[in-house]
């Protein structure tokens, strides 16, 4: 297991270098000049422009600029935002908990509903429940996220008034962030109703964000289960006189989990990379919104640093997924 872990970690190195290059190159490939954007509509004189170019180091060769960035990254310095003049690292970690909280809730919803749905659909293959479930999964998968979000807001916030429209918590409550996770901080603050308020704010964005992963997980679970249910060892399990919940939920599901875990891992990556639309619609102060804004501002350090951090998170999630394979199926552990 340790050797497996080390060999996996070693493959991190080339991936990491690649990610650095891509995130550095990405923003520079886009047309637009950060200095011009910063100057705004007033514009600026040629001398001042030249001065700023030198100040940001844009006059130096690209390779030197990259080397600066790369050595900075290795020392844990992602640079300073052109716009806010604050370290990218600090900005990232100020916003990341919000995204993490939202993604976590979304993936929990997707797994808790998607797994059983897929199992039940597979067991009742071709019957009403299977068809109903799989068609709704297809609808969920293909529905435009912004439209679905607006629909939910209209119904639950507008008409029924059950949930707030945007933000993470009511303005009534204020407490200093401790962990950055609103659910935990609101509990820690000890203020009456703060936690409920946080939950109510979280619920709609989580559902919206969970929709696509939920559909994907349900469909993947169903197809993996269908394959496994035809295996000889399932017949063995049934011949032992085991009850269907045990046969399907333990013997079959455990074997069907490998492709499902892969899909879950990919979904988590996708969610972390910034649920941009969802965060924008619900004014959720996460990294998705932050990254989009910084792309508009051509805020080079934020874009490249943010991309790098997100890529790192995705790599870590994938590593965890790989380790989980071994836990689920001992045959993989040996390789």
């Amino acid at each position: 297991m340790l050797r497996f872990l080390i060999s996996r970690l070693l493959t991190f190195i080339p991936t990491f270098i690649g990610v650095c290059i891509i995130s550095f190159a990405f923003i520079r490939v886009l047309p637009g000049d950060p200095i011009v954007v910063m100057a705004g509509e007033r514009g600026l004189s040629d001398e001042r422009y030249q001065e700023m170019v030198e100040q940001f180091g844009f006059d130096r060769p690209l390779i030197v600029q990259f080397w600066d960035f790369f050595t900075g990254v290795l020392q844990g310095d992602l640079g300073t935002s052109f716009v806010t003049k604050r370290p990218v690292f600090d900005e990232f970690f100020a916003l990341f908990p919000a995204t993490l909280e939202l993604s976590f809730c979304a993936i929990v919803i997707a797994i808790v509903l998607g797994l059983p749905a897929g199992v039940i659909a597979a067991v009742n293959r071709g019957k009403f429940f299977d068809r109903a479930l799989m068609s709704s999964a297809l609808v969920g998968y293909s529905m435009p996220i912004f439209w679905w979000a607006l629909l939910l807001i209209i119904i639950f916030s507008g008409n029924l008034g059950w949930t707030p429209v945007s933000g993470r918590i009511d303005l009534l409550y204020f407490f200093p962030p401790v962990t950055g996770f609103m659910l935990i901080d609101s509990l820690l603050s000890g203020q009456d109703g703060a936690f409920t308020s946080a939950v109510r704010h979280l619920i709609l964005p989580s559902i919206v964000l969970a929709t696509i992963p939920l559909a994907v997980i349900a469909r993947q679970t169903r197809s993996a289960m269908l394959e496994v249910l035809g295996e000889d060892y399932i017949r063995t399990a049934r011949s032992k006189g085991l009850a269907p919940p045990r046969v399907n939920g333990l013997h079959a599901l455990r074997n069907a989990m490998i492709p499902v875990i892969t899909v879950i891992g990919l979904s988590v990556g996708m969610l972390l990379a910034g649920a941009i639309l969802t965060e924008t619609i619900f004014s959720w102060p996460g990294i998705g919104k932050w990254m989009v804004d910084s792309i508009y501002r051509r805020d080079y350090p934020v874009v490249q640093g943010g991309l790098l951090m997100v890529a790192l998170m995705v790599m870590v999630v994938n590593l965890i997924v790989d380790l989980t394979y071994g836990l689920i199926n001992p045959k993989i552990r040996k390789r």
Partner: peptide
């Protein structure tokens, strides 16, 4: 070989 569950 395939009648035993590989996960247990």
């Amino acid at each position: 070989m395939s009648s035993l569950n590989p996960c247990f």
